[in-house]
Amino acid sequence: MMEDMSHYPLELTGPDVPMVRFMNVTKRYGALTVLDDLNLDVTEGEMVTIIGPSGSGKTTVLRMLMTLETINSGVIYVDGKPLTHMPKNGVLVPADAKYLRRARASIGMCFQHFNLFPHMTALENCMEGPVQVLGLSKREARERSEELLEMVGMIDKKDQHPSRLSGGQQQRVAIARALAMRPKVMLFDEVTSALDPEVIGEVTNVIRRLVSEHNLTMLMVTHQMGFARDISDRICFFFGGRIEEQGPPDALFGNPQRDRTKQFLSAVKEAD
């Protein structure tokens, strides 16, 4: 059954165009509905953290934004333009591969398991995108990459392969690699979940610096509640594929309104 797309705008206009907009987004895996008619706006420069129990759809939000998952219904807009769809004869139709590549160019992502290229050094990992995708010269790409590796504190290890780096070090390289593409939106998908406790700080500190020094729009999924509270502009609590409750960190953590939020937060606190 084809969804009627006529009520979705071809482009978002006006003074308050959000950097990211999920509009009636539904995602299903077979009979399981992972995202249920989700509406979510993220404004430019905002840091939004998604929390919630496992299976609540929080990682799916990021994966759909990175176009790693297809969409069942609804539309995602990035910077005013549709991401999952493209305009054709005045209506939105599902985006083809060529359109997707153009549309997702402004999005970068870091993964739980880093996903660095094992056959390339830290520096080569960072240069790969700028050279092969953006068409920068090797020299320009190297300058840009070294600057970023410096920022994440990995310049000493730039000639090491990932197999020689610790998890925290690999994740910092992965952040530099994503930033080398100069994204407008950065996605952090449980970037500290696979790390040993003693190295979590080195990764969260890098993200802290990004928040304070850059005007990046960021979406993060994390289980580090203290970290999320510190750096986020807004927290979204997901439950059953919907936003159960959202608000500024102090309000959501300090004075949650919904029962499910309270239950989740007290369960997390106990586990800590």
Partner: peptide, 23 residues
Amino acid sequence: VPKGQWEACIALNMTPVKTYFRV
């Protein structure tokens, strides 16, 4: 080759050809 490698290539917006031959 792990699935994460393909996803990293999408996140870096690489073409399918570069994804195969470079990664």
